[in-house]
Every structure is written in C-alpha cells, then in structure tokens.
Design a protein around this nucleic acid. Structure first.
Length: 432
RNA sequence: GGUGGGGUUCCCGAGUGGCCAAAGGGAUCAGACUGUAAAUCUGACGCGCAAGCUUCGGUGGUUCGAAUCCACCUCCCACCA
C-alpha cells in the first residue's frame, strides 16, 4: 500500500480525527518507511477496547511498511494524564504500575510483529525518565515550555477553569513528559510521527514542538476519533464494566457476544474502525444487509473478525459453539460431551452446592455470578425469566433449589443449564 | 490563617424535624414487541426469599422521633491574607 492509499484508506474508515499538514504527512510517508509511535499508559492490568483502535492503527502502519513503536508508559503511568479528565486521579504505586506495564507489553506483542531487525519496537518511557534529576528536567526540558501555552490547552482548560475541581502540578506536568517521550524517540529511533486518540492532540503537538526545538527535527501528528455509539452511551462498556482484551478478564465468549450485540446503527462503522476488511467489502455487506429482511449479517461478521483477531481462531470457534448451543433454542439436542465442551469453552459454570434446602434461588444465582443482587433474580423470577433446564421458574420455586437441582432433574445426571433473562447463561454441575 | 459555600443511595440532583429507603433524570437489570439490534411501552432499581436490617462525609449530642437541629472533626471549592 503506498502512502497516499494508506491515508486514503484511513480516511475512508473514518479513522482520522486530525492530522498535521496532510500533504506533508503523505509525502513523508511516501519517502520510505517511517517510524511512528503510540503510547499506552498502564492504568490497569490489561488493555481494553478503547486501546484497540490505536493499537490496530500501529498495525495498519506496519502492514503498510512502516515501523511502529509501542510505548508503554511506565513513567507517565505513574503521573496520570489529565487530558479531558474532570477529576484528579489516584496515584498508583510503582510496583503496581510496573506489574501492569508487563501485562500491557505481553498483550501488545500479540498484535504487532516485533521480530526482525526492522521490526517494531517495544519501548518504555521509564527507561529515559526515571533517572532524570529535577534540575536537569527543569533546565533542559522545562525551559522549552511556557506555562501560558500549557494552561491554554483545551485538554486541561476545564480543570483549570471549572469550579469544584483542581489540577495538581503533578498531572499538569504530564504533557511535558509526553512531549519528552516524542523527542527521545525521535533521537533514539528517528521517530517522526505520533498517533493517539483525539484527546491526545495537545500532548502530541507539544512533543512535535519540543522535538523541533531540541532536535531540530520535523515531526508529525495523527489522531484517531473517539469511538462513539449512536445512542450516546459510552462505547466498550458492558454490565460487568470494561471489555478487556485479556481472556481471563473478559472471556472470548463474552467478547464475541459483546460484538454480536452491536446496534445496527454502529456495526458498519465499527467494522471500518476495528477490522482489516477492505472498506469496499464492508460497504458491500452493508448494502446487502439493507436489502435483506430481518437479521443482518454485519454483527456476525464483526464478532467473528474481532474475536479471531484478539483471541485467535480456536477461541472464536469455542465462542461460536457456546453461542450456537445457547441461542439455537434447542437444548435437548446437546450431548453429554457437548455440556462438557461448553464448560471447556468458557461458559461460566460452577458446582451445585451440596446442601440446598435452605438456599433460595436468589442466593444461589447471585453466588454463581449471574446477578448482582437477589433483587434482580427476584425480579426475573416474578416474570418467569429464570429457566433451569428448560423449566421456567417463578417466585414460588424460590425455595425449591434442592429439588430443581437434584440428580433426578440433571441432564445426564450431572448438568443444569440455567438461563436468567434472554442472555445470561450459567452451567451448574453436580460435583462428583 | 480568615470568610463564605459545599460533601445525599452507581452518576447527576431534590429533600431543611415525623407522611423518607429518601422526588426527578441518567445508567443498569427484567418483561412485551423484535433480529441476542434500535425505538417504544411495562416493571425493578440499598440489602434480605421473608420477618426485617443498614444508609444521607465522620463522631457525639438535642428530641418520643434527625438526611434535616447543635457541637466538634474531616475533605472539597471560592475569595481574601
């Protein structure tokens, strides 16, 4: 893919929010492989969906022949980025941040190819920040920043002007640190492009300026749009919170389901953002869906692409098997092996407690993690929305757990598939 | 250090002595309708199957009774020094 078509493709996908001079950037990219970077601060032990777009963007550039640097913010993660945050954040301990940094490194490696001499680079800004002493920092770096400009940045303006919040000097300094990263990466790797979410524009531009002043080098910026949902709610959240890229935190099945439930109004847009399918193909799918009656195929395609990309082919197949079994409506067709497979595939499951005579269903299902409180289960019971092996249960069965979960009622003498509402499933099994 | 304003259930935000587990909105969950979509309508929404239990920054007090009054403490914000 040549430089122009890369940018053209990104535009067609709606993946570009802002760029520094487009012509210059296109020309720069055309002149040969460019080294670019994107930073990921360790704010948790896993990346989540919000990180995926920039991460994949690095991959898009790599696929187009450029060299990405994935920067883990071992240093910046200790400070906290105030950009567009309405509150000061809690500082995390160094140990925790270091641990999280390692987690992120492992994840990032799954998406980008770091092998080979010209392969991608995995960097950590802790390496060039930790040993800078205060005086050098203030004299060599701080001198290039005017507070006037720093305050004027849109990303911190709210915090400075708004009543009821403040901005600590610590967080205020963040933009200098990030600028320093860019300048360092420019020196170390001749990195000339930084990408990031559109909220990073201010920080990136700061880095461009510092790079010019200190290194005399010309650098570029490209930001990605914030992913929004058509209904205005926040993208990437489910009942359980963020959708993580780590299988242990968000199972491939849950991940697959998340994408499958994408609203029609968002699905084609998301396909352009998140998948590597050509834009024409996505447009074709959309056109086809428009013509067909009933259920569109977009969500299916999106869910498969994403699950395969993040968790791999095997995990995708497992997620599909579970989905097939649970939503086809016919549980009687499942064999004993199928039940065992569901469990292996990652359907949430737990053993039936030995003594149930005193345990209401509400408690049992809450303990299994199917609901947050007994009230929710009660609500479902009152509407006959709790189904144990195809038997709908009402409030009057609440104290009948022992009977419902008896060996006599178990499938293959062992399994109980419990459904709460339409979408929550849990496999109970009798312990041997 | 001074003065003033504020801290209410996941979030926003009413509530100034009983009728308050606490208005309203948002988020969320369930039901109907559908396509595991959206929109709409219905219900739930501190905890508990229930009896009942625990909340309104903290502690102590006044009172038959406090989120509401008093004292002290604490945190946040604004202005002043």
């Amino acid at each position: 893919m040549n430089a122009n078509s890369l940018i053209e493709d990104l535009k067609a996908r709606g993946l570009i929010a802002q760029m520094t001079n487009e012509e210059e950037l296109v020309e720069h990219l055309a002149q040969g492989p460019v080294t670019l970077y994107c930073g990921f601060d360790p704010t948790a032990d896993s990346l989540h969906l919000g990180h995926l777009v920039p991460l994949l963007m690095l991959k898009r550039f790599q696929d187009a022949g450029h060299r990405p640097i994935a920067l883990v913010g071992g240093a910046t993660g200790l400070i906290g980025d105030p950009s567009f945050k309405d509150q000061e954040r809690q500082l995390n301990s160094e140990d925790v941040v270091r641990q999280w940094s390692d987690c992120l490194k492992a994840q990032i490696s799954r998406f980008i190819d770091f092998s080979g001499e010209d392969g991608a680079v995995l960097a950590n800004n802790y390496d060039w920040t930790a040993n800078v002493d205060v005086l050098s920092f203030l004299r060599d770096i701080g001198k290039h920043f005017t507070v006037n400009k720093m305050i004027a940045k849109e990303s911190v303006k709210q915090r400075i002007e708004r009543d009821g919040s403040g901005l600590s000097f610590t967080e205020f300094t963040y933009q200098i640190l990030q600028s320093y990263d860019f300048q360092q990466l420019n020196s170390l790797y001749n990195c000339t492009l930084q990408i990031g979410g559109s909220d990073q524009w201010g920080n990136i531009v700061g880095g461009i300026e510092l790079t010019r002043r200190v290194n005399g080098a010309h650098a570029h910026a490209l930001t990605l749009p914030l992913i929004t949902k058509s209904d205005g709610t926040k993208f990437g959240k489910t009942e359980g919170g963020a959708v993580w890229l780590e299988a242990a935190k968000t199972s491939p099945y849950a991940f697959y389901q998340f994408w499958l439930q994408t609203p029609d109004a968002d699905v084609y847009r998301f396909m352009k953002f998140f998948t590597f399918l050509p834009v024409e193909q996505i447009d074709a799918i959309e056109a086809e869906d428009r013509k067909r009656e009933g259920r569109p195929q977009g969500q299916q395609v999106l869910a498969e692409e994403m699950t395969r990309l993040v968790h791999g082919e095997d995990a995708l197949q497992a997620a599909r098997r579970i989905t097939e079994a649970l939503f086809s409506g016919d549980l009687s067709s499942l064999s004993a092996d199928d039940y065992a497979q569901l469990q292996l595939d990652g359907l949430p499951s737990s053993a039936v407690p030995a003594e149930l005579s005193e345990t209401p269903l509400t408690t049992l299902l809450v303990e299994a993690g199917m609901a947050n409180s007994g009230k929710q289960v009660k609500d479902a019971l009152q509407r006959n929305a709790v189904i144990v092996n195809d038997t709908a249960c009402g409030m009057e069965q609440n104290m009948s757990a022992a009977e419902l979960f008896s060996a006599a009622n178990a499938r293959f003498g062992k399994y109980f598939l419990v459904k709460l509402g339409k979408k929550k499933h849990h496999l109970f099994y009798l312990a041997d």
